[in-house]
Amino acid sequence: MLILRESYFIYVRNLKTWLAQPWMIVAAVLSSAFMFLFFGEPLRGITALPGFPADDYQAFLAAMVIVMAVVFSGSDMAMVLLTDMMSGYVDKLLLSPVNRFSILLGTLLIGGTRAMAQVLAIILVASAIGVRFEGGVLGILGVIVATTLLGVAMGCVGLIVAMRTRSVQVTVNSWLLFMPLAFLTSAFMPRDLLTGWFQVAVGLNPIEYIMVAVRAVIIEGWVWDSILPGIWILLATTAVLVGAATYEYRRATN
């Protein structure tokens, strides 16, 4: 398949570009380690609350650290694409006879790869501070696959922001867009213990269901009642966002 061959070349280029910026990687890992340190430590006592589902708050928090890192990676992907648009590298690709979709695919796949690498790093950090994964090795693999997909989906949001606005100031600040997605969740506290409008808003946020599924695998193991809704919502969200990014990309390159 020519598209796969072309996408692969573009993907490898994007991978090299990413690896050529080691501070991007260091910062991504550090920010996740800081989450455990600055949220996990002070909030440790929450587990004593009646009805709190985990004994180890760091284990509870691990799902939030993982999902949040991947959600915010969408903002990084926006910047990656915008940088290539502004340097004219996207034009250079468009001048070549490659299929337009190969360029998009090579970019989305790097979004997935970055998410995957970051999740892997977080799992290592979590293990190092003593978090046990109830879902076992298969659970860890499941979390990695799911969050890679989520990385592609969030990358789509980033690409749409970059293509629509073509503006540095909007794109640099696009993490704001991802903030409600990441924080209107049961990130710090299970949904049953939340109250009022916040609890309602959390129920409407698709990311919440993905976070609940990831957390279930970590603190409880294979509890399908909590995991399945997350899987369906992840698949649906990814499909919709890839579709929207493809549409937007067609519009922008024609």
Binding site: F9, K16, T17, S87, G88, Y89, K92, S96
Partner: peptide
């Protein structure tokens, strides 16, 4: 001066161009 990939090495930039064509 459009379209150069600053983070790529000169040789890699050219080889990728070739592959894409």
């Amino acid at each position: 001066e459009v379209g150069l990939d600053d983070l790529s090495k000169g040789r890699d930039f050219l080889e990728l161009q070739g592959l894409l064509y």
